[in-house]
Amino acid sequence: MESNNKITGWSTSEMAQKVAMDIHDGAYVNLGIGIPEMVTGFIPEGREVIYHTENGLLGMGKVAQSGSEDPELVNAGKKYVTAIPGAAYFHHADSFAMIRGGHIDICVLGAYQVSEEGDLANWSTGNPNDIPAVGGAMDLVAGVKTIFVITKHTTKTGASKIVKSCTYPLTGKNVVSRIYTNLSILDVVDKKLFVRKLAPGVSFEYLQQQTEATLNQ
């Protein structure tokens, strides 16, 4: 982290766009709270993607416009949303049967840490003063076919979020398929990390310098 010319790489919007490009036509997709929600804005024209929200809606539409919010129509982040024509409501056990039963194609989640073997930590920092909360994260990583992670490459203090082994409590082991950061897109293949794409101005050497985990070309 000695480098004076720190490279910022892709913006958050650009990261979300990269994720969107990898979501296929006809996919059923669950998006985590926060940055993952931005992905909806970048799905290419002509691709039909159906969004699942674990609190009981398949066919989630855009965020509700001011003045037409319905407190009984919310997403997993408890934001007021809308439902598209053709949407379906269901109870929580059915919703998680969709998740755990392998019916959802792709889930996009944020992360505290991802290990080189594809372990994910995104629910607890392990700080005993924090109120533990897990929500649906562990069910999603256990059941959804493909898990994408979207996250800044390093923390605010410059520590790598792509690590050899997670130090925070795990959400799931060997669950992540692909990681989208501001510096690169990484694939987890056979418990190893492979660089799939580098952000402009980022060399493999620079990326490795910014990454605790071992990277492969």
Partner: peptide, 11 residues
């Protein structure tokens, strides 16, 4: 507090 993952809670 007994923390239960959401899907496990429902099931």
């Amino acid at each position: 507090l007994e923390l239960v993952p959401q899907g496990t809670l429902a099931e």
